[in-house]
Amino acid sequence: MSLLRIRNLSVDFATASGKFRAVDQVDQDVDTGEILAIVGESGSGKSVSMLAMMGLLPWTATVTADEMTFDGHNLLTMNTKARRKIVGNDLAMIFQEPMSSLNPCFPVGWQIKESLRVHLGLNRKQRHARAIELFEQVGIPDPERRLSAFPHQMSGGMNQRVMIAMAIACKPKLLIADEPTTALDVTIQAQILDLLASLRDETGMGLVLITHDMGVVAETAERVSVQYAGQKIEEQRVVPLFDEPHHPYTNALLDALPERATEKRLPTIPGVVPGQFDRPAGCLFSPRCKFADAKCKAESPAPQSDALGRARCFYPLNTDQRQAS
């Protein structure tokens, strides 16, 4: 039984110009102690699917799923009050912009201690001791003094460490990191990723890493789920995915990595992700796919077998019949 199990999750947003489907029939499993990376371009619904699971979407969103369980709790039938006991406690999340994700009006220590009080009911002294311990754990120097600092007095990397400390304050079973390094310098990115991976090793929590950076995936993740235009189009363990991608989109993404480029000019994927009004009838990737034929443009492909990475493609690559170009 996996820690997090999501089946057939869809999220629709009510917009002024009608319904917009941000997440389309996504399945997802995360095991204890596992690092899953969800990759995809902007707008592919990676964050939205996890925010839906956390119950953090605005009221304009409609979430439907066949199954959504976390650690034995059914998140679908749970009321908000019961969910609040889990969210921030066993199930934690950190965000893309550490600077704006912390409240500018309160010292960072206060913001961490708040979780400790609400979820664990620690007294003042215990909260202080635990906050210092957490700061040390995430590598913030001089924790005693830093606790009373405000977010604007610290760097982005330090703030992200504070966010991580806040997220792991109640020893969560699953941590979702939504592009945790996007807003940070490259050198700091590596430190934060190392920190997340080592925390996983220490605590045995599951870790979901949402990212659009294939480099981050290769370095950190164990299993990779690729999303495109709201659909999950492929899922594999990290090494096979990089070696033998089955979906043409994954293949194209990997081709576009600068490290893999063989020509002087970096290959790109023509076109853009379909939006609300130009969603194709068949396979969502078909307008940009160099292998697409009439069938791809007419019918929506179902996921293939596990051996083929559950690729949503009629003609998966790197099989016996077909080799990637």
């Binding site: 969210v87 965000f95 409240n103 806040m166």
Partner: peptide
């Protein structure tokens, strides 16, 4: 609509606390 309100909700705080302390102060 700010990010830190989403953070406060991700911490599992009650609506009253989010609106009355985290949001109102700002």
């Amino acid at each position: 609509g700010e990010d830190y309100i989403r953070t406060a909700r991700a911490k599992g705080l009650s609506t009253g606390r989010i609106n009355g302390i985290h949001a109102l102060r700002n």
